[in-house]
Design a protein around this nucleic acid. Structure first.
Lengths: 159, 159
DNA sequence: AAGTTATTGTTGAAGCGTCAAGTAAATTCA
DNA sequence: TGAATTTACTTGACGCTTCAACAATAACTT
């Protein structure tokens, strides 16, 4: 059993700050979604679908959003129930389902998106200089790049 | 209604990378804890308590770990049931309870801590240069500093 | 001292995520 | 062609988080 390599002071500060961001900051982000009856992932799903007017295979959607099939299935059930998404089977492949955003879904994210962008800005970027933002993007992209084959994990820009 | 200010390309990359880290990376971190019957927050609580041999008031513990009273209460119930923590009432103040880590709790985090440190390293710091790490710590600390009055949110170094 | 307010902590319900198991269709391959 | 494997997706159970409501003690206020 090798001697464990503990984090040094800088690493520890980075990690603890990240955890604070996750534990305190993200729930604040969530509140905007909850006010509209959504959770963050559902917003991401709607945003992704809003860029694909012809719909998206569920497996592709799951992969692009980095969610498990199970999780996607549970979220889709709710989004379908509430009329934000419709799902039809594929003609080509009997296994796949294709999700399409509805008009109601489109209206919803068009309403939520600006608030979300403002939230993210308030939480994160308003507190960082341009240099800090660039450095943050650089570092996080290095990490995320190896985690997810799919880079386009979410949509924050205009719908 | 002002025109929404969308994220620019760098900000978007930073945010999406952060979300990937949260959605893909943190669950990997969680798996180590689950293997020991814990969740991340519980590890943090035990780690915090392990540095206070005389115990800690629950309200102080909650504040220092940035968790709600309710959440703390639920987690403590489990930690008490499993014998990792003991709680006694305070003599000074009839409202407060004081939590103390047990020997079993101490043994547990001493076992888990090195694995957790290795996980964090694998996830994050092994993929970053010293400069990137320093920049990340700088940027995240700027953000976290305004989110949490309490900086010592968790313990990653030797117990 | 009595009433009000603030602090500390708990509880139960509802919703979400994970995991394991399962169905069904397509593909591979013997 | 038929059997095994892979791919796509769903379901149910269990644990965790949040939120609202609650109880109990302490601290103010006049």
């Amino acid at each position: 059993m090798a001697e464990p390599r503990w984090l040094d002071e800088t690493e520890r500060r980075a990690w603890l700050s990240l955890m604070t961001l996750v534990i305190v900051g993200l729930p604040e982000i969530e509140r905007t979604f909850r006010a509209h009856g959504l959770v963050h992932v559902e917003y991401g799903l709607l945003a992704a679908l809003s860029e694909q007017p012809d719909g998206l295979r569920l497996c592709d959607l799951a992969q692009s959003m980095n969610v498990s099939p199970s999780r996607l299935s549970h979220r889709m059930r709710k989004l379908i129930e509430r009329g934000y998404v419709q799902v039809r089977g594929s003609d080509d492949d009997g296994r796949v389902s294709i999700a399409v955003i509805t008009e109601a879904g489109r209206r919803l994210i068009e309403e939520v998106a600006p608030q979300h962008a403002a939230d993210v800005r308030r939480l994160l970027f308003d507190r960082l200089s341009r240099e800090q933002t660039a450095a943050l993007a650089d570092a996080l992209a290095s990490v995320a790049g190896q985690l997810a084959p799919c880079p386009g994990a979410e949509v924050e820009t205009a719908p």
